[in-house]
């Protein structure tokens, strides 16, 4: 059924005036830069001395060990960090959802608190806490968890652990709030009924909670995927050294695609074309993963 022409016009006038300002701003500040970078990805050269390169930049990707390292690191962070963080957030949210729990308001606030801290501040704090003689190693030594101080920032393995720890610290509470909000929307009588039926708690979690939270889980998974694949600030500021070589962590162990784009644009001989090509790798990855995540979520609907 198509709406009457008059109503349709009314709809369109209002529709366009409501979305107009946002669309205009997006066109100017997003669409134009995106088109520019797409055009740039077919250019090659130093600084502003550019020439058309066709698929030269894409061929270069296949021969570039630094790109491959950055891609590997980014995928590693995604595969390890996102599941850890979301599982933890979901688990905590479920525990905090228990109305009999004392101090739940306080606990919720405390666990959410990390995400009010600015990136610059938390990188400085983490840097100072994870120094070789810093508070974290002192504590681990005192508790006899380790016998030697852990070289957090000078060993590639530990640098990656540190980065994952930092991001998890910053974002777990943030994701938890989404789950908590969604849990509060769930009708508690379903739980009661299944509890009386003798369904064990883990089964309730997997058969009731998870399916009911699926839209939120999907939402947080997609946003976390985007966040991790674009990971830049933490990788550049916490572990990355500010020395002249500007590697991200020992042996470029925390070099992510975004940091590499930044290097190609601002640190190295400026190569805007190649940088644009690398960023489209991120776009393709995000699009692919988002598609897969939506697909998986949809399948289970049936």
């Amino acid at each position: 059924m198509s709406p009457r022409p008059g109503l349709r016009r009314y709809y369109d006038i209002n529709g366009w005036s409501f979305v107009g300002p946002a669309v205009a701003l997006i066109l100017l500040f997003m669409a134009y830069p995106i088109v520019w970078s797409l055009w740039m990805s077919f250019q090659q050269g130093r600084g502003m001395r550019l020439s058309f390169a066709g698929f030269g930049n894409i061929i270069r990707l296949t021969q570039d060990p630094v790109f491959q390292l950055a891609l590997g690191n980014t995928v590693l962070f995604f595969v390890v960090q996102v599941p850890i963080m979301l599982t933890l957030a979901l688990f905590i949210a479920v525990l905090l959802d228990d109305p009999h729990l004392k101090f739940r308001g306080l606990l919720r606030t405390l666990i959410f608190l990390p995400c009010v801290m600015s990136l610059v501040v938390y990188s400085v704090l983490f840097k100072s806490m994870f120094l070789l003689d810093g508070i974290v190693n002192q504590t681990l030594l005192a508790l006899a968890i380790v016998s030697e101080p852990i070289p957090w920032m000078s060993d590639p393995f530990w640098a990656r652990v540190l980065l994952i720890t930092a991001i998890t610290w910053r974002w777990t509470g943030y994701n938890m709030i989404f789950y908590l909000a969604a849990l509060q929307n769930i009708d508690k009588s379903i739980y009661e009924a299944s509890r009386i039926d003798g369904v064990p708690s883990y089964a309730r979690f997997f058969r009731l909670t998870v399916p009911m939270l699926k839209p939120v889980i999907l939402f947080t998974t997609v946003t976390s995927t985007i966040g991790t694949l674009q990971l830049f600030d933490e990788a550049r500021n916490i572990v990355a050294s500010d020395t002249s070589a500007g590697t991200a962590g020992p042996g470029d162990s925390v070099l992510t695609l975004s940091v590499y784009i930044y290097n190609l644009t601002f640190r190295f001989m400026p190569n805007f074309g190649y940088a644009a090509t690398v960023s489209y790798v991120i776009v393709v990855l995000v699009a692919l993963l988002a598609f897969v995540q939506f697909y998986v979520a949809r399948e289970r609907d049936r």
């Binding site: 000078s154 020992p250 042996g251 001989m269």
Partner: peptide, 17 residues
């Protein structure tokens, strides 16, 4: 030269190894 930063980065990757 004009690529000191680039080669520096390549060197720094090998140093810990």
């Amino acid at each position: 030269g004009i690529f000191t930063n680039e080669v520096d980065a390549a060197v720094a990757v090998q140093l810990p190894k």
